[in-house]
Nucleic acid binder design. Sequence first.
RNA 1: GGCGCCUUGGCCGAGUGGUUAGGCAGCGGCCUGCAAAGCCGUUUACAGCAGUUCGAGUCUGCUAGGCGCCUCCA
Length: 427
Amino acid sequence: MRLYSTLSRRLEELPAPPGPIRMYFCGPTVYQRAHIGNARPFLLGMWLRSWMGDRGYDVTLVHNITDVDDKILAAPGPSAAVAAQATEWYLEDIGDFKLGLPDALPKATEAVPQIVSFIERLVEGDHAYAVEGDVYFRVARDPEYGCLSGQRPDQVEEQEPNPLKEDARDFALWKSNKPGEDLAWDSPWGRGRPGWHIECSVMAEEAFGPVFELHGGGLDLVFPHHENELAQSRAVGHEFARIWTHNGMLEFGGEKMSKSLGNDVSIRNVLDTWGREVALLYFMTAHWRKPIDFTDETLAQAQAQVRSFRAAFAAHLNVESPSLPWEVFESALDDDFNTPEALAVLHRWRSDGQMEMVRRGLRVFGLHTLAQFDKPPPRLVKLAEQRQAARDERDYPRADELRAEIEEGDWEVQDIADSPGYRLIPK
RNA sequence: GGCGCCUUGGCCGAGUGGUUAGGCAGCGGCCUGCAAAGCCGUUUACAGCAGUUCGAGUCUGCUAGGCGCCUCCA
């Protein structure tokens, strides 16, 4: 199996099973409802874990939560409560995809002692310096700085000059407590809080030690966040992540969806409006590295595909001797996790009536639920039986009335050709 | 100014030099009491220009347009 890595800028072959494959994916900063773009790295991580598990790998997925940050401090109310509430929402939201949870969901605030000692190591190694209660990373000491993002340090723009820094490119590892900030810890440099990048270096080390196979996150984190993480970890002698995956952004009206632009739609909203199956299939339609448009039309297309799979399962087709072998599906996913191509294979099996193959493939993505049907409510079964009776008596106006009533209950009644039977399918 | 990415038919999207991707929507037909589902058929693809090659959507160069990052961001 291979995946494209930002670090090498090419496809990287994974070690042979069973690995291990240790994956660290950057999660959200928790200060409000997470938007649907935040779901993408989560889903990619979960799907990779699922697929690699099937392929015989020993996989561990760590997905961090940033619960100390400027935005949390700026939000109205006690910061700890803001973060706790938003964390709860996030866990609810990702839980509702019903894919299970990552193996660990560490929080920055629960790693502060380790963060402090990590920074001490950097200071001792002369990779960092303390100034008036802040600690900064010394970028000039790292000749490799920029290797992940391709940024040339001398070309990086500085927005607001900070006189405390030796060099404009240096970034904060520890920030001194400012008046009004209600999240702070004691440290050798005084009361303060961790900078943004350091938590990931520390929590990845906590989980995996000095080296692990895969680090994921959104494309917008390549620089500066991941560049800085890598620099910090290498400064203490770690190899850190070998493969870096960066998923494409969700776009909304031609622009990136983000909280700062105010064009974001929450995960909760999407789940409530379209349901988990449509949301999951929607993300399958685009390759993970590419941008994906978030529009009613693209979601509606995903919904149409969901319905086509469900209808095929309802028809109970299962033809033996597959037209395409399982290996075709496998190689699509093994090759840079190409979900659109895998989806095309599933459609091919669907149209050939090989629903067991479809079910097996959908299971990787948590979509095998399309093959499971709840029992229709007894009230609707009764209506369907009445409709059947009306049809038998050729009372078609009555039959159509009953069908409309069934559809109001979000089930659809379909007659079966060549038999007097019908079937009920959830809409 | 720097770094990186993208441009395929009405829409979404595969395509790792040489036979149909696939889905959605549309149209015509079969089936149906009517539908739905299904099935069959069908509809100006590869931004433009030049090059490499026996052969390019696929490689190279240029042009045009778009996007991301360099500041919080998945």
